[in-house]
Structures are given as C-alpha cells and as structure tokens.
Simulated scan of single mutants.
Amino acid sequence: MPSSPPWAISFRTALLRATLYTLAIGGIAQGGYLEVLYLPEVRYTELGFTEFTQTLVLASCCALLIYIRHVLKVWPTVTLLLLAFIGASLVREQDYFLDHYVAEDTWKYLVALIVLPSLGWVIFHRQRFLEEFRHYSNTFSFGLFAAGVLVTYIFSRLYGRQDFWRAVLQEHYIRDFKDIAEEAIELLGYSLILFATIELLFLARRIYRARQTP
C-alpha cells in the first residue's frame, strides 16, 4: 500500500476541524446579532463588532503567514503572495482611520507599497512560484482560500449593490440594510480565508516535520 503524503489527514481530524469551523461561523453570526441588540450606536460601523472582527481575522491571517514563511519556511513565494494580498486587505479595512487621522487616500499608497514589491518578487521567482503553487493548488487550504476570495471580493460586492437593495426595498430603502448585508457577507468570506490560513499552517507543520525526519 502506498504511503500517505505528508499533507494527508485522517477523516477524524477533518471532521473535528469542520466542526470547529462550523462553531466559529455560528459564533460570528451570533456576534453580529448581539451587536445589533446591544451596540446600536456603533453597529456595523468601524467601531462595531463586525468591523473589528474583520480586522482581527485579517491580522491573524498575516501573523500566521509570517510564521509559515519565516519560521517553517514552507512555500515562501506562495505565502509571500498570500501575505501581500491579505495585508493589502487589512490596510484597506483601515481606510476610515487612515483617511481621518493621517491623510485622504493614505491606504492606497500603503497598499501599493505592500503589493508592488511582493508581486515583483514573485514574478522574478516565477518558476519557484509555479512549482510551489502546483502543490498548494491541490490542498484543502487552497479550496477554502478561493471560496473566501469569491465570497468577499465578488459576491459581497454584487450583493451589496445599492441598485439591488433599492429594487428590493423600493420606497422603504434604507442604506443600513445594504451595509449590514455587505459587511456580514464580507466577514464570512474573511473567516473562510482565516480557516484556509489555519489549514495551511497545519499543512506546513506536517511538511516541516517531514523535512526534519531522516
């Protein structure tokens, strides 16, 4: 019988993780509900539960990717590209504070400083990137990450269109409905990206241990 690759996990482990991720999603949904009930002054604003959790999730993803890249040293070009993408998203989420306390459109310059050098490095090492991506694209982590990107950057934007909500609510249209729907779906997408990063961490640890074994 052929041996399992270093990234293989058991059914029990997969079931446990799926259960924990389900509970986490439920907790986030409950947090949004409590935000509406008990934080009416700041609900779905930059100071509310949803926006704060988005920032916390993205910051956690960045910290995990830095650990994977610089400590475990697994797939450095792939993780650099992921880190640049998520780091840019983290900066973008702080646009209100940057515009208010620093200068208008500051976040755009910070995103450019993150993305352009990282993209240039990946292009320069494109052969290494393609080799690493060939492995990463066949993992559960990649599937979750792709789902998170589609939910956050495609579906939430389309679902949160003002024209759509005006058509639904007609003369009863209130911008809060649109904002709540968009931000809640965005948080769901970010959560999927966090789960993908956690899965990548577990995978990287297994690969790291396999490298240490003679």
Rank of each mutant, 00 (worst) to 15 (best):
T13C: 02
W7S: 03
A8H: 05
R17P: 00
W7Q: 01
Y33M: 01
L34V: 00
P5K: 07
P6V: 06
S4C: 09
L16H: 11
S10W: 11
R12S: 14
S10H: 09
G27T: 06
Q30A: 15
A18Y: 00
A24K: 04
P6L: 01
L37M: 05
P6W: 06
Y38Q: 14
G31P: 08
A14P: 02
P6F: 05
G31W: 05
A24H: 06
R12K: 14
R17L: 13
L23V: 12
E35L: 03
L23K: 00
Y33W: 12
T19K: 08
A24Q: 03
E35H: 01
S3C: 10
I9G: 00
A8L: 05
W7D: 06
G31V: 05
R17V: 13
Y33G: 03
G26R: 08
I9C: 03
Y33F: 13
T22V: 00
R17H: 10
S4D: 12
W7P: 03
E35K: 06
Q30D: 04
T13K: 09
P6E: 08
Y38R: 14
L37D: 06
P5G: 12
G26P: 07
T22Y: 03
E35C: 04
G27Y: 08
S4R: 12
L34T: 06
T22P: 09
Y38D: 14
A29R: 09
L20S: 09
G31L: 07
T22E: 02
F11H: 13
Y33N: 01
L34S: 13
T22N: 00
L16P: 06
Y33R: 10
L23W: 04
G32H: 11
Y21P: 00
L16C: 11
A18S: 12
G31I: 03
E35D: 06
Q30Y: 15
L16W: 11
A8S: 07
S10P: 11
Y21K: 01
G32F: 04
L23Q: 07
R12M: 09
R17K: 13
A8M: 05
S3M: 08
E35V: 04
L37C: 07
T22M: 05
W7N: 02
R17D: 02
T19Y: 03
L39C: 11
A18K: 10
A8Y: 01
I9L: 02
I28S: 04
A18R: 11
S10V: 10
V36H: 12
I28Y: 09
G31E: 02
L37E: 05
G26V: 07
L37T: 03
S4P: 11
W7L: 00
I28Q: 05
S4Q: 14
Y21G: 05
L23D: 00
L20M: 09
Y38V: 10
L34M: 13
S3V: 10
G31A: 08
L15A: 13
L37G: 01
L16V: 11
I9S: 07
S3N: 11
P6K: 05
T13S: 09
I9N: 04
A29L: 15
W7C: 03
R12Y: 09
L39T: 13
R12I: 14
R17W: 09
R12Q: 14
W7A: 01
I25C: 10
L34F: 15
G27I: 01
I9T: 15
Y38I: 10
A18G: 09
V36P: 00
L39G: 10
A14N: 12
Q30G: 02
T13L: 03
A24L: 11
A29N: 13
Y38C: 12
